[in-house]
């Protein structure tokens, strides 16, 4: 049986790198004594597949990994047992049993399904009060080119095309949409419904301006928060540095042209 686990990573655990997060979950699955499946060979490893690495210092309410079990289990039991093995800074939010793979189809992992991500960002101390105008300018622009380091040197990429929706978070938590091409269903506010659920573990410093970005993600066109931050710095004439503190709200897959939560893909 395959299942997809949704989890949150927050607090001090935002300083754990991706490899350490994977190790952490391997140990947690063993502590929870789940009937996890192992690969064959002399050095068997747990069959786990993580959706998308989270950069250091980014918190999240929308992380996923897939696991394979040797026995059937109820989704709620799976979620609760794993959640009990969590330490401060991690929480299991969902478990979803995946349908069996149809014969003669390509294996679908969480990673290969990723098409989009939504981030709640806020300006860092060094950019205090400067970023709102930059975001407005960025939203109004047609393109924004930044230099991206690649395996073979550097490459200029247009960040703007991969950003599908941009919003400023008002003081009362409602969203003022600056741009939206309709690919994502944007939340109305951070205090109700999806918005509050998915911004639960974000770190917020009083008076810092906050924004929501819905972007392309995954293997085809991955727009990271760092790239957006760089584009904003360029737009605002801020010396390049870390301008955005980020929180991932959700990861998405693409179904019939629309973005749907990775959990139910």
């Amino acid at each position: 049986m395959k299942a997809r686990i949704g989890f949150a990573k927050f607090g001090n655990m935002r300083f754990l790198g991706h490899l350490d997060v994977m190790r952490y979950f391997q140990h947690a699955i063993a502590r929870a004594n789940l009937p996890i499946a192992y690969s064959a060979g002399f050095h068997p490893h747990m069959i786990l597949s993580f959706a998308q690495p989270l950069a250091l210092s980014v918190t999240s309410d929308g992380e996923y990994f897939d696991l394979e079990l040797t026995e059937d289990m109820e989704a709620t039991e799976l979620r609760d047992r794993l959640d009990e093995a969590m330490c401060d800074g991690f929480a299991i939010t969902d478990a979803h049993i995946l349908p069996p793979q149809e014969p003669n189809t390509k294996k679908q992992t969480g990673m290969s399904q990723i098409a989009g991500a939504m981030y709640l960002c806020e300006e860092t101390e060094s950019c205090f009060g400067k970023l709102t105008a930059a975001v407005e300018a960025f939203a109004a622009s047609k393109n924004a080119t930044v230099t991206k380091p690649t395996k073979n040197g550097e490459r200029d990429v247009d960040v703007r095309a991969g950003v599908h929706a941009i919003a400023i978070v008002n003081d009362d938590g409602t969203l003022r949409i600056l741009a939206d091409d309709g690919v994502f269903a944007m939340p109305a506010s951070l205090t109700e419904g999806f918005g509050s659920e998915r911004s639960k573990h974000a770190i917020h410093r009083e008076d810092a301006a906050r924004f929501v970005f819905a972007v392309s993600a995954g293997s085809e066109n991955n727009i990271s928060v760092e790239l957006i931050g760089e584009a904003l710095c360029n737009a605002a004439g801020i010396e390049n540095g870390r301008s955005l503190a980020a929180h991932r709200m959700e990861l998405y897959g693409c179904k019939d042209g629309a973005m749907v939560s990775l959990l139910t893909m």
């Binding site: 607090g11 655990m13 140990h27 800074g89």
Partner: peptide, 8 residues
């Protein structure tokens, strides 16, 4: 992660 504690 050397400096944050919080281990199991």
């Amino acid at each position: 992660a050397r400096y944050i504690g919080g281990e199991i």
